[in-house]
Amino acid sequence: MTATRLTVFAGLLALALVSVLTGVASLGGDPWLVLVSRLPRTAAAMLAGAGLAVSGVIMQMLVRNRFVEPSTAGTGQSAGFGLVAVTLLYPAAGIWLKMLAAIATALIGTAGFLALVRRLPARDPLLVPLTGIVYGGIIGAATTFLAFERDLIQYIDIWMNGEFSGVMLGRYEYLWIAGALAVLAYLYADRFTIAGIGEDASRNLGLNYRQVMAIGLAIVSVVTAVTVVTVGMIPFVGLVVPNIVSRLLGENLRRTLPVVAASGAGLVLACDILGRLIRFPFEIPVGTVLGVVGAVVFLWLLHVRPRSAR
């Protein structure tokens, strides 16, 4: 088990190094390049990845379903809706206002999803992601409709398809909020694990279930909204990473959350590096790369069950 952890963290370090060294311009002459572009970009990918992976695992505990994450539960789409709405209503809005709007709609949208999920039968767990994907699709359609008539459609693509090529010093720092929330989540790790066992069990153990739900909801919404506003939605990280980690290390978050965060950071970073290399010197957005990689892993997760469970 410790070997797994060691591998994960060593891998992450190596990836970060590769990320700093990978790009169109050579590093030889210009130390500024590293400071202004490469390091921020590397940090942004790691922060977004860690935040989304942790959000994914929290969501899975709260919904008690393995196959949900911010992009399959309408959270990302809701954040996008808030962004479009505030841009339409108040075009001069600064980034703070946009972010607050995105956070607010992400909260409402995710709460709506949780309410919807409550009405689904427990015996068919796969209905939950199915419902979430369609729910997100409807919110996405509403957003597209708004944007379409007001010529904002190119922004939608930017917000809904994550990309790090624009990241520079001074234009990504909000992502540290996502990182900070990932750390905060660690303080609540035990409570999320208990909530994941079930509402009755939580009550039995004296947990304030509603409070834990609220905190989890807030973390997920804020991380997702911050990511969407600064770099755009990155799909599947929150789903793929926690599922693989839970297969290797189980689901006691106190133990696994750091690994989840590090693996999420590593996955997004690796996909970003891949996106920089595939069509060098052009870039493929990380959202597109993860769309392919994440979907393949998701399919694998769906059809290959862990050996222990039948």
Partner: peptide
Amino acid sequence: SRMILTGIIFGTLFRSMTSL
């Protein structure tokens, strides 16, 4: 449900591959 979900994810995969 597994079949539908598989189909949906295949759809996502195809779309991502198309844009890639």
